[in-house]
Design a protein around this nucleic acid. Structure first.
Lengths: 202, 202
DNA sequence: ACAGCATTAGACCGATTGGTCCAGTGATGT
DNA sequence: ACATCACTGGACCAATCGGTCTAATGCTGT
């Protein structure tokens, strides 16, 4: 009946502790990497004591990292859907994705990296992290490919276009970080010319 | 005449301590990141005691990181030159770069990331690292742009093509890591269609 | 042989790391 | 009123962190 999971305390923090931890983790890991972020700093940012962390995430930092990556990935999927669903074509949808991401990049201080890769690329030893990151990334690609197919591309074309778009986004985001310039991301969609399309007009 | 910089002691380590440290740092940072790599592990890999590190690199880990990034960047510049110099066209040179990098990716265990970014993307606080990384990356881009111009592209086109190529390489390398598949890198050159070329045939 | 210098070897340091543990605390159902 | 239970607060821990320091160890030129 009563879903008071998030309701209640108005004066204090608007979000429950668990959410605050995830948000803080996503933000910090994005900026300083997984091993570059200490628990002390994380708990300060989340305004939570250590006991809460290990209550909500029994395996501590690594559990929290997975949760933060999941949350960030979910945000990205929503951005993809929000951009492609009303789009008249794949190109237009991709353009919207670029612009939204560029805005996000600016809001986050023209610095932060991809939360998932920053969090989960932690060396060859941590196989679980790597596989989880792969899972999330492939989710982005297949979500994009689904939209591409819906917008008229053939299955193989759609998959290729989605992969290509993903590559451009990752690479473009990195160059944007290097230059602290979100325009790099905005310009990415110009490069979005599926190789097949080149041969079309013969 | 006598280039004995690397020669000498055959029985023991073929490389001097300083070089061993740089090599070990480049390898470890590439795999586990800057803050993910401890000095103990680094010194074990380099087979060097702590005293040597602080003799050759007075500022310790951070100095070593800069040196390792420089070394890696130099390797990349050589690869770019070696690929583009004998190439008949920019497209062919870029293709060679992709294939050489893909081979390198395989040799390094289908995992390692870009040494420069892995080393020097260490959070917004470390401004010196960020600026150095930016310097090195722009070096790659301008080196590529120079080759592009030499191979017939106009100055603006050459710059755009070089940036686009850099973006593809970074993004493609990351997807290759995710999938542990160097073919992603090999296929990158197919995406190399300068946007101008699309408008050409109207 | 000796002085001088670059390099090595590793003991040692305080600070910080991620993690454990348990005594509270406060809302809840009975 | 009381027991229950999810949650909090933080003291505490061993291990590791990056870094300092000094004595020994070579190789140099003289």
């Amino acid at each position: 009946m009563d879903d008071v999971t998030t309701a209640g305390s108005a004066p204090d923090q608007p979000l429950p502790t668990r959410e605050r931890l995830i948000l803080a983790a996503a933000s910090l890991f994005r900026n300083k990497g997984y091993s570059g972020t200490g628990l002390a700093e994380l708990l300060t940012e989340a305004a939570a004591p250590k006991g809460s962390l290990y209550h909500h995430f029994p395996n501590g930092k690594s559990d929290l990292a997975l949760a933060a990556a999941n949350w960030a990935s979910e945000q990205m999927l929503q951005l993809i859907d929000a951009s492609f669903t009303p789009a008249p074509s794949f190109q237009e949808g991709a353009k919207t994705v670029c612009y939204k991401l560029a805005k996000l990049f600016d809001l986050q201080g023209k610095w932060s990296g991809c939360p998932v890769s920053a969090t989960l690329f932690e060396g060859p030893e941590n196989e679980a992290f790597h596989q989880h990151a792969a899972l999330l990334f492939e989710g982005w690609i297949s979500a994009t490919a689904a939209h591409a197919q819906r917008l008229g591309l053939a299955e193989a074309e759609a998959q290729a276009a989605a992969e290509n778009f993903y590559i451009l986004l990752q690479g473009g985001w990195q160059l944007a970080r290097v230059r602290r310039d979100s325009d790099v991301i905005r310009g990415l969609h110009l490069q979005l010319c599926p190789p097949m399309q080149l041969q079309k007009n013969d």
